[in-house]
């Protein structure tokens, strides 16, 4: 399978002379995959995303999206990428929710009836039909995130890039967004590229996790492999997931358990230990 996104040894200079040099492992994303980028602040996550979106020009290295250089072929690549930025307030452009979802399609001269059909379909999918005629200023944080997501997927992109989508969301909005992202990945086959700090929900949304630290891509594994290695998180200055920490310390106490990636697995492991002791 040919990767849909490929980044190799990327170098970028910001105007204040800050240099970001993302080397180490090659960043590869296959079609339909859910990829999470983890890393502490200033690791280069947003720089990586900006290059994938074609917003920045690399000084050195290789960036390929759908076989094209996204910076040189911005207009071509843009049509296949949906994006949700960290601050969705700056992303919602339309005077009403309906207009915002339709924004990209109108720019791409999609037929009016088709636009209407797609806006209503996506609104139903994200359960925001009741706010279609509302103006954005009065929406809650979770609703704004959903509107931005609807606007990003309205044009049926192949890749959806999201920068910190779970930031400043309450538990219920977070699980809503999580559910929706998995749904659109499954139903429409949209490839997901997500940056987040929220390690506890990463296993729910990732097939592959890239860990970035000090300008190096140091790991590109599945959640099970990565979460078994608690030390790697501490090395890069991230707090390991709470379940990994707990089960790692149980292992240090000599209890034979595997590191789980979710609550269900943790429960099964604990129950088997308890039952074993009872017997």
């Amino acid at each position: 399978m040919n990767p849909i996104v490929k980044v190799n040894c990327l170098k970028h200079f910001y105007p204040d002379k800050t240099e970001v040099h993302l080397c180490g492992l090659e960043f590869l994303v296959n079609p339909g995959e859910r990829v999470v980028i983890l890393g502490p602040n200033g690791a280069g996550k947003t720089t990586l995303i900006s290059h994938i979106l074609g917003l920045l020009k690399a000084v050195d290295g290789e960036v390929e999206v759908l076989g094209m250089d996204p910076y040189k072929n911005f207009e071509k690549v843009r049509k296949y990428i949906g994006v949700v930025f960290q601050n969705v307030d700056e992303q919602i452009i339309g005077p009403t929710v309906y207009d915002d979802i339709a924004f990209t399609m109108r720019n791409d001269k999609v037929d009016k009836n088709e636009i209407d059909k797609r806006v209503r379909e996506i609104a139903a999918l994200l359960k925001i039909e009741d706010i279609l005629n509302k103006i954005p200023h009065y929406l809650s944080g979770g609703q704004k995130k959903k509107v931005a997501l609807a606007g990003a997927i309205a044009n049926k992109p192949k890749i959806l890039v999201m920068d910190e989508p779970f930031n400043s969301l309450d538990v219920s909005s977070k699980s809503d967004i999580l559910f929706l992202l998995n749904k659109i990945n499954k139903e429409f086959g949209i490839t997901l590229i997500i940056t987040t700090h929220d390690l506890d929900i990463v296993p729910e949304i990732a097939d592959k996790i890239y860990l970035i630290s000090d300008g190096k891509i140091i790991s590109g594994e599945g959640p099970r492999e990565l979460f078994s290695n608690v030390g790697i998180f501490e090395d890069v200055g991230l707090e390991p997931p709470i379940l990994s920490k707990l089960f790692h310390s149980l292992r240090e106490e000599g209890i034979n358990v595997k590191i789980p990636v979710n609550i269900k697995e943790a429960k099964e492991q604990l129950l088997s230990v308890i039952n074993y002791k009872k017997v």
Binding site: L55, F74, I81, F85, E90, Q91, I93, F103, D108, G151
Partner: peptide, 19 residues
């Protein structure tokens, strides 16, 4: 940032036909 978002969402200038 807003300019980048407008570009990514296909805006290339002129008034958008909202309604």
């Amino acid at each position: 940032r807003m300019y980048q978002i407008f570009s990514l969402r296909g805006y290339s200038g002129g008034i958008i036909n909202w309604h």
